[in-house]
Design a protein around this nucleic acid. Sequence first.
DNA 1: AATGAATGAGAATTCATTCAT
DNA 2: CATGAATGAATTCTCATTCAT
Lengths: 203, 203, 203, 203
Amino acid sequence: MASVAENKYKKRGRILDAAYELFTSKSVTETAIDDVVRLAGVAKGTFYLYFRDKYDLLDQIVMFRTSEIIVDAYKKLCERTDKSSMSVPQQFVFMTKQITEYLRKNKKVTALIDGKLLLCFSERGYAMNGSLREVKEHFESLITQLKYSAEDAKKRLYVITEMISSVSCRAVLSEKPFSFDEIMPTVNDMLTILLSEVNTVDK
Amino acid sequence: MASVAENKYKKRGRILDAAYELFTSKSVTETAIDDVVRLAGVAKGTFYLYFRDKYDLLDQIVMFRTSEIIVDAYKKLCERTDKSSMSVPQQFVFMTKQITEYLRKNKKVTALIDGKLLLCFSERGYAMNGSLREVKEHFESLITQLKYSAEDAKKRLYVITEMISSVSCRAVLSEKPFSFDEIMPTVNDMLTILLSEVNTVDK
Amino acid sequence: MASVAENKYKKRGRILDAAYELFTSKSVTETAIDDVVRLAGVAKGTFYLYFRDKYDLLDQIVMFRTSEIIVDAYKKLCERTDKSSMSVPQQFVFMTKQITEYLRKNKKVTALIDGKLLLCFSERGYAMNGSLREVKEHFESLITQLKYSAEDAKKRLYVITEMISSVSCRAVLSEKPFSFDEIMPTVNDMLTILLSEVNTVDK
Amino acid sequence: MASVAENKYKKRGRILDAAYELFTSKSVTETAIDDVVRLAGVAKGTFYLYFRDKYDLLDQIVMFRTSEIIVDAYKKLCERTDKSSMSVPQQFVFMTKQITEYLRKNKKVTALIDGKLLLCFSERGYAMNGSLREVKEHFESLITQLKYSAEDAKKRLYVITEMISSVSCRAVLSEKPFSFDEIMPTVNDMLTILLSEVNTVDK
DNA sequence: AATGAATGAGAATTCATTCAT
DNA sequence: CATGAATGAATTCTCATTCAT
């Protein structure tokens, strides 16, 4: 039964679902808290029981959805039988492709996320989705294989991710100065350069 | 004399100055058009004579300020007597340093610009500051020297700029996951890898 | 015509009148700003053009009404042909009677004023009603006649007024522990003791 | 150990303590029942088991605290060995000094009490603090000694107390038009005039 | 007796925009 | 061109109270 705790979870979940629906179909600014609670079928006050304000709600949604996108891409990578034989750049390019394809196919979600693809890599984000930490550690270890120190690997991973995230979001959303299809090969090429063994040997 | 045209310019200019002052000292959302016109000393209706709404005003400010930052950095590069003997990566690293140092020293302005450092590279932006096109062409030609095609050079320049812009803005504004001083050496190193002759020879 | 300034005054005046009507017929807490603007026939925003909030409005109303009550009582005193032959206590008792009778007859207004009968004796209050200063000076000079220093007279006038104000408001509003008719003779008697020449000679 | 009744008392007591803490540190309007129950560590519903609403709670607190202040002052008077040789005005001035000094030193409590120093002299107040009736009777009998009738004494005591209460609260809280130190000598002097034998002989 | 999640009416306030002068 | 009083829909947020457990 556990109907109290269950119900509590249900109300919060219904608000999150309703908000996601409205934020992606309209936009965040065009969505009033009033709209959210009406669609969720809960009272106005209930909203403030679970969220500080609209932006707290947005943050939680973005964190949840982005972690989902990233973890899903990682799962696809793991499902590949040839994963262990893939080079470091190949694994990055594969992940990038999974994530950016998702963004391209879900423009509304991309608009919601905008540049905040990395927001989920925060304490709050890890708490929401345990698998996320695993993903990060896998890619950090890949970079470490290129003879970078652990700390250096973290930083390179961060810069690479920020680059991919901002370029692909902009490509999907404004298609200017380059469309998604125009820019992604360049991004992949640059990714390969950044992660090729050659460079690390030089170092 | 031309006091009429002059006056017209004055009003628009006063609005821009007042808005810049308020947008950087408070924030855009915390600034009402009312505040802007009060500080500018013009009537509410006058605002709508020159700007469509607050975001039109914001765009114009950001475009103007970012083009200024970029052109200023380029001027400093041109002032160097050894410019012609600098390698391609060296010139990029120099520009990056000029721009990001400015951001670091002007946190309020960075908050205003946020990720929109590249907004000025648009038709409207070129119209505002003629020197801007020159800057872009110079760096595109540098990349072309690395044996990339003209179109490819444009794209690489775009991805590089997007990377620098998003990483440095985040470093200045949130200092998470890395502070400015922690991340910039990595960015410069990655920049050098991306622009070194070696890679292009490989291609 | 002067229809702009005229209209401006009208709107503010209509809000004050509507609020007074509602504050006295219902109560301040039971009156929403919404009610006020609806009755005044102005837009919600117009309210905030003239008043900071409900309590700013209330203060202005109380100041205006109390100054009116006091000045009216003073006018009645001046209309008496025998004013000059009245003793100091007699003049105070007369004023007290005028004011407290008004309170007794206008319980709703008394509820609004509550203890704030003296609120009008402030810079803002004097600005609203010029005659008020004159009233104060007359009674201070009366007390000075009792051989008190000017400063001492001001203080005694203040304590006396505070006493009358708080006792009579409570008598009218709660009738506990004494009703208006029960307590006023005592107040008048005490007033006479405090203002009789005998005391001053002793001093 | 009677843990049920004890617990019941504890909950009510904890609510009173928490509310007193919040009402004095913030203010009554700024304190929500939610804040009170959270600080008291009881459930929201429990509040409504013991108090009708916030103002019922406030009344009970004010009654309890004011009766404490008054009874404490009276105890100090009784502790004086020369009490029996003190004149009527001297005893009043002593009590006034005790009470008003307390108010001056406890501005936050004064803000809570505001004008309601006499609220405790009600049936409900007597029920809370048995000693209170004794205090009142002592001072009434003092006034009766001045040849006033018992009924008259009650009224004079009431007016005097109201005067002291309203003047001293305002002095402590707003310091306008007179500060505590400026106005108290005048109050004491007026108190002495009102209670001196001379006046009563005149009657 | 005690709980605390849920309620939802209602309050205050903001602010972009208009338009008569 | 310029003004600024007026608008009023829209929005956020509060909070006393209830009631099933």
